[in-house]
Design a protein around this nucleic acid. Structure first.
Lengths: 189, 189
DNA sequence: GAAAAAGATTGCTCTAAAGCAAGGTTTGGT
DNA sequence: ACCAAACCTTGCTTTAGAGCAATCTTTTTC
């Protein structure tokens, strides 16, 4: 049982060691290389991932071939394409590791079994959805109608990890600007 | 008990008449005029609303005074500032009726009581959060890096109610363009 | 550790959409 | 039904950021 997963549950629920050991038995540790894919567009997402080290990126490629990054899951966070996991439809987004990473993987079936039958996981799932709601509301309001320099400053303040650990190409696709523009913006910081 | 609320629960859960009657007793019908506010920026949100007729708009005003509309709840939908409801923090967004509307209101306390104690409401809440997740993922991917004409076409296809029932000013603030631009775009449809 | 590939920077040009102004239209209040 | 206020449209100007090309730098691979 990984101490990062343990803390994650203990910070958010009252759960005893026995239940923790039980539910953690459903997670399987996997190692992924930099730039490896855990899900590709068109595939149905069958797993939820909890990042132990490294990070996962959720992104979409539009018809013009333009990449759009929606979320980065760093260590200590869950990350998956919940839209595909929930609906069972093929995913429109990719899940890719951006660094050599270790993640815990749990199957969709097991995850939703625990959501129904293990109160702590029910709380965790609600928590994930609520956090996603709050984060996305913030992102919509802070991005729309705001110029790119302000968005960059927002990122620096709100998500310093994204700015410090990831390449400009990824940051640009997160901010919704071209790498050219991002490069220029950095001169104005 | 309102038949629209009844259908809402029956479509999403297995719930009997008795439990339905019980939980519906927590909702109180209120009438609001066009352009009336149910929540203003800075206030803590204390209610969840279910729209019977008319519609509610969730929007934010940024420091430049620019309005940004995030969500429209039409009849048969729940709508509130969940971020403020969940966190207990003052809301950064307004809730305003855009038409003469009838809504069912349930207090935050009662709502979360039912989420914990009435399985159907627990399912409904999860359902609301999951839908919000799916909708917002879609919106982020379909809006970012896409020009304004394509966004307008998307709206027409995905949310015809927004296009048909609301003023251009509101539609523009939903699409993230100025009313000038929207007016011109409509010539290119 | 060298070659290749991917990524970053910067000058220049181009374009989508913002911003302003003025005139026309619709809506709402009394 | 009338007046005021809000809203919509359209011509003109300005601007933020896209797109391309060339060069430089860092990272990956064998």
């Amino acid at each position: 049982m990984h101490h990062i997963l343990k803390s994650y549950f203990q910070e958010r629920t009252q759960i005893n060691e026995e239940r923790l050991a039980f539910l953690s038995s459903y997670f399987k540790e996997i190692k992924v290389n930099k730039h490896e894919f855990l899900l590709r567009e068109g595939e149905v997402c069958k797993f939820n991932y909890f990042v132990i080290s490294g990070c996962l990126r959720l992104y979409h490629v539009n018809k013009e071939g333009l990449e759009n990054t929606r979320y980065i899951a760093f260590e200590g966070k869950f990350g998956t394409s919940f839209t595909s996991l929930i609906t069972g439809q093929p995913s429109i987004e990719y899940i890719q590791s951006l660094e050599k990473s270790t993640v815990l993987s749990i199957s969709k079936k097991d995850f939703f079994f625990l959501v129904e039958n293990e109160p702590a996981v029910n709380i965790i799932y609600r928590n994930i959805l609520e956090s996603a709601y709050i984060t996305t509301q913030k992102r919509i309001y802070d991005f729309q109608g705001v110029d790119s320099l302000q968005r960059l400053k927002w990122l620096l303040e709100q998500q310093p990890n994204v700015f410090n650990r990831l390449s400009n190409k990824i940051i640009a696709s997160y901010l919704g600007v071209t790498p050219y523009t991002l490069s220029r913006l950095k001169n104005n910081l």
